[in-house]
Every structure is written in structure tokens, then in C-alpha cells.
Write a protein that binds this DNA or RNA. Structure first.
Length: 530
RNA sequence: GCCCCUGUAGUUCAAUGGAUAGAACGGAGGGUUCCUAAUCCUCUGAUCCAUGUUCGACUCAUGGCAGGGGCACCA
């Protein structure tokens, strides 16, 4: 529908839902002078689909759809199944999305949850716009942090790490020692060099085992969160190519030597100057990320690259992209960096453990326990918990910090994932109980137009805008309103056995399909029962 | 010191330069002989400050104030 209005008026018009439903189903701002001619243009495009097209003053044209046009859209919402809400914004494109980026020698903490959840949802939204999507993650498996973990393992005499917790604790002890003990610092720095060299067989064996154990835990959590990766890249895959590309750039004067290190002087471009290769000739994260850009292109050539990281990396990415812009302009141009906010806990049980970082695993477990109070079925409890966590992350505009108030969010009430899931479950229950009217022609449409019907018909526009703006919160807002309207409808209207049963069941099925598709795009599970 | 991000009801968040700034939680009151009350209905209450651009500013610009993050060999 939006497309048709745009066709009548040109690409640049602002089309939106009016603030008040009494105004109509669509509002277009065209300016006071053009309002009359716009009415004519829209009328000839929409024909009998619109019952009212009027100038609202202040340059708005309001469009109200007819009863049958709304019913038609609702029927479509039911009949199209999985295709309801599919867009064409990225049709035929190849897009690679990077997110979650684990540090393979630390446990996943709650901060990683944000990028993981946002990245998965963006991947799904982009896929839904017609693109072929590959998901990749870039794991840290080399560098000083890794040396700290291996040092910790060696000191505890562990040669065969078996759990991610063990590796995480080794990292903590190594990290503490590094800051407080100069001997340990020297040893760890030497270990770091030895890992890059890769010739100490026992050390590399420990390195490989530690990485495997950690990655198994990451994969377990990814699976729990409904995500997976087509490519798992590691630092160790990018050191060689990173060094090579940066050294090439050094020869072309894109990088400079400074105190034995190779730096990119970003000041002239308004970005920070950063070290790309250290004076010990080891690549920093910046060089590895440059290497990764080339490696990705080699393994999976794409039209667009999206990288999701925490917003503390925003400055670093500006420098990396500025440098890459000189090395390989076409590659740099297609990269979009999406910054996510921090997940902070409001005061509560989980934030007061001696300042320790809360692991993602413990956090998810705690929410599942809470959800279990109302759900005996462990699968459902897990779906509700994952839904609650994802909703809390995705409801906010990307980039802003997320304050997780344990007491409130774990209540699983109000504006929350379970609110959407519960509305869906109740609707599914009605559809399952009802006589099968699916193929029955809607003999008569009721006079009354339910609010929920007028919300449902906007779904395709919301999904395409959400994907275009890379802002899942837009879809979350819409689905929350949709659920709320469904709950009102459910409370006020008798559906099975009520007046206009056939029509109401059509609305119920359309709601079920819209909510199911919407939750799927967010990566929020849709339970059968609650 | 420089750079980036954020300031909206008591709290946590929305809002495509556009119409009367929208929810949830909290607080006050009410609803089920009936399809799942994790629900529904009513009331309550906000754009950090100043100047500017615009027909129109929560949104853009400049200057303050407040909070967070980043700024050469860590990621």
C-alpha cells in the first residue's frame, strides 16, 4: 500500500501511520500547496480501495481504507504464511554479518549477549529483505589476553582443561598477576611471543585445548539463543594477512613507522592515531581486523559487510575504516559498523558479587529458573526466558545502554517478551479449538472494523523499514502494540460462537501469522503453550 | 586537554523535521457464571538549560550543564 502511495506521489514523500486512527490508515505530508493535487493522484492510484482521502490542514493528506480493502489485507496476512512480511529491499544481494566475537579464553559475559542477540535479529531481517546472508564471528585466540589465560593454566598445573569455567578462572588469575607481579608480566609477555611463534609444541597443545573447550561453551550458548555461524574466524587466521597488508601499506606511505611500531596517523582525518603493528612485530587487533576484511572477501565475496560490536569500539572502527579506505576503498565502502550498548545490571543479587563479571551462562540460567515458576515444561521455560532476554535487548534503539533491572524484567509481565508470547499462545489456542473455517468464504463482513485489523495490515511496511534502518526496536514496538490490540480484542469480543465468527477467526489466524513471523524475525521463540 | 555517544513522566524505554510526545513499571480505582487474569478498562505524570535555523524542532546548528565511553604498541 505504501508503495502505491509512493508511486502516486513520488519517492520522497513521508508516509506514516497517523497519530490518531480516526484520521485514517495512512498519512502523507505533501505541504499545503500540493495537498489538493495529491488527493487526486492518490485517488486515481488507489481507486475503490480508499473510502476517504482528505486534506487535513497543515499539509497532510489522510487516507482511510475501505472495509473490504482492510479485510483483503487481513486475509492476505493469513494466507501468505511465511511470506507475509517478506520484502525486496535487498533482493539478490549477498550480505555478511559479523557479530558475537568471542574471546576464546574468557567466558562469555552478559555484555556479549547484546551483540549476539542484535546480530542474529539483523541477519534474519536482512534475509527477509531478499538477501543471501552469511553469519560470521571473529574469535580472539591470540594476543596478550590469551597469554594470560595460558599462564594461569600452567601455574595451576592444568594440561587438560575440561571446562570453560576453568579457562576463565585461569584468565582471571593471569590477568591479576600481570598487573601486580612484574615477574609474571615478563613471563606472560614471553608467552605471548611464543604463541605467535607457534613452535613450542606443549604450549600450542595447551592453547588448542583451551580454545576448543571455550568454543564448545560458546556454541552451546549460541544454540540456546538460536544463532549459528557459517564462518568462525580467529585472530590466528588473520595475523599473517594482516601483517602483509599493513606492511604493504607502509610501503605506500599509508602507515608510518613510529618508535619501532607501525601506526596509522588518523589525526589528519579526524580519527585517533592507533598502532597496527607493535615494535615486537606482532599485529594488534587493528591489523587483524584489516586482515579479516580481506579474508572475508576471499572466503565469501559480498555486496555488503555488517559488523556488530559494542559501542566502546566505535572510535577504533573509525580508524580502521579510514585506513582501509586508503588501502582498499571499495572494500571499506561496503562496511557498516553497528555499535551496540552495554548491558548493565541495576542493583540486585546479580550485580553484587564482589564486582565479578556475570557470565552469560549464569544469567540465562537465572532467568530460566524464574520462568520455571510458571512453566513446568522446561522447554517452555527456556523459550520464555530467551524471549524475555531478547526482548529486553531489542526493545531499545541500538547503541544505547541497557539497564537490566532484575526485579522488573524477571517479573515477565507488562512490556516484555512473555507478553508477546502469551498473546500469541492464547490466539493459537483459539484457532486450534475453533471449527475449521479456513476455506470458508467470508460470507459477510461485519460493519465494525476492529483496531487489530488496521494494525495487522502495516506489518510488511514495518519489516522493511526495520531492516532498512537496522533497528529491530521498530519491529518490537509494532509487535507490542499488535499484542496489546489483540489482548483488547480478546477481552472484549467473543470469538468462538460469537457474532461474525468466521470473520473473527480470520482475524485470529492473521494475528497468529503476523506475530509468529514478527517474533521469528527478532529471533524470539514462539511457544505453543504457556 | 581532545574525540564520540547519551540526557524525555518517580523509574526503564519509544517517537521517519510534521498533527494532541507513546508504552511499561510504580501509585489510585475497577473488571472473570464466558475462548489461558503472564490479561483487560479508567485515572496519574515528562522533552536538561540558553540562543538560533525552519511554515513546523525531542529530533538539526552553536554554546553551556550532567552522565558514559574512547584517546600508540591490550582486545
Amino acid at each position: 500500500m505504501e508503495d502505491r502511495i509512493r508511486k502516486a506521489l513520488g519517492e520522497n514523500v513521508v508516509i506514516r501511520r497517523p497519530p490518531n486512527p480516526d484520521f485514517g490508515d495512512y498519512a502523507v505530508f505533501v505541504g499545503p500547496e500540493k495537498a489538493e493535487s495529491a488527493v487526486q493522484a492518490i485517488r486515481s492510484e488507489l481507486g475503490e480501495k480508499a473510502s476517504k482521502i482528505e486534506v487535513a490542514g497543515k499539509g497532510f493528506v489522510n487516507i482511510t481504507l475501505t472495509r473490504s480493502a482492510v479485510t483483503f489485507a487481513v486475509a492476505e496476512a493469513d494466507a501468505k504464511g511465511n511470506d507475509w512480511g517478506k520484502g525486496v529491499g535487498e533482493d539478490g544481494k549477498r550480505i555478511i554479518v559479523e557479530y558475537s566475537n568471542p574471546n576464546a579464553f574468557k567466558e562469555m559475559h552478559i555484555g556479549h549477549l547484546v551483540g549476539t542477540v542484535v546480530g542474529e535479529s539483523l541477519s534474519r531481517l536482512i534475509e527477509n529483505s531478499g538477501a543471501k546472508v552469511a553469519r560470521d564471528t571473529f574469535g580472539g585466540d591470540i594476543g596478550p589476553n590469551v597469554a594470560k589465560a595460558l599462564w594461569g593454566l600452567q601455574k595451576s598445573g592444568i594440561t587438560e582443561p575440561t571446562t570453560a569455567v576453568e579457562v576463565g578462572e585461569a584468565y582471571s588469575s593471569g590477568s591479576n598477576a600481570y598487573d601486580s607481579d612484574t615477574l609474571a608480566k615478563t613471563e606472560i609477555d614471553a608467552l605471548n611471543q611464543a604463541i605467535y611463534a607457534g613452535t613450542d609444541r606443549a604450549l600450542m597443545e595447551l592453547w588448542r585445548k583451551g580454545r576448543d573447550v571455550s568454543m564448545e561453551e560458546f556454541r552451546r550458548i549460541w544454540k540456546l539463543l538460536g544463532t549459528h555461524f557459517d564462518f568462525e574466524f580467529f585472530d590466528s587466521d588473520t595475523t599473517e594477512i594482516g601483517l602483509r597488508v599493513v606492511n604493504d601499506g607502509l610501503n605506500k606511505n599509508i602507515f608510518q613507522k613510529s618508535d619501532g611500531a607501525v601506526i596509522y596517523n588518523g589525526e589528519r582525518k579526524g580519527v585517533h592515531t592507533l598502532v597496527f603493528i607493535t615494535s615486537h612485530n606482532t599485529p594488534t587487533y587493528e591489523a587483524k581486523d584489516i586482515g579479516l576484511a580481506f579474508l572475508k572477501e576471499e572466503r565469501w565475496p559480498s555486496d555488503r559487510v555488517i559488523i556488530v560490536t559494542g559501542n566502546e569500539q566505535a572510535g577504533r572502527f573509525k580508524t580502521i575504516l579510514a585506513a582501509l579506505g586508503e588501502l582498499a576503498p571499495l572494500l571499506a565502502e561496503k562496511i557498516t559498523h553497528v555499535a551496540t550498548g552495554f548491558l548493565k545490571l541495576a542493583f540486585g543479587k546479580m550485580s553484587s558479587r564482589d564486582g565479578n563479571v556475570i557470565t552469560a551462562s549464569d544469567f540465562i540460567k537465572e532467568v530460566i529458573e524464574k520462568a520455571s515458576e510458571k512453566n513446568e515444561d522446561p522447554l517452555v521455560a527456556e523459550q520464555v526466558a530467551v524471549g524475555a532476554i531478547k526482548y529486553m535487548i531489542l526493545r531499545q534503539s541500538p547503541g544505547s545502554d541497557i539497564i537490566f533491572d532484575e526485579k522488573k524484567s524477571l517479573s515477565l509481565e507488562g512490556d516484555s517478551g512473555p507478553y508477546l508470547q502469551y498473546a500469541l499462545v492464547r490466539a493459537k489456542s483459539i484457532v486450534a479449538k475453533a471449527p475449521n473455517t479456513k476455506h470458508q468464504a467470508p460470507n459477510k463482513m461485519p460493519e465494525i472494523l476492529y483496531s487489530i485489523e488496521r494494525i495487522i495490515l502495516h506489518f510488511p511496511e514495518v519489516t522493511s523499514r526495520t531492516a532498512r534502518e537496522l533497528a529491530p526496536n521498530l519491529l518490537v514496538n509494532y509487535l507490542t502494540e499488535l499484542a496489546s490490540e489483540w489482548n483488547s480484542f480478546y477481552a472484549q469480543e467473543r470469538i468462538i460462537g460469537g457474532d461474525d465468527e468466521t470473520h473473527k477467526l480470520l482475524v485470529a489466524r492473521a494475528f497468529v501469522n503476523t506475530m509468529t513471523n514478527g517474533l521469528t524475525l527478532l529471533g524470539i521463540p514462539a511457544p505453543e503453550k504457556m
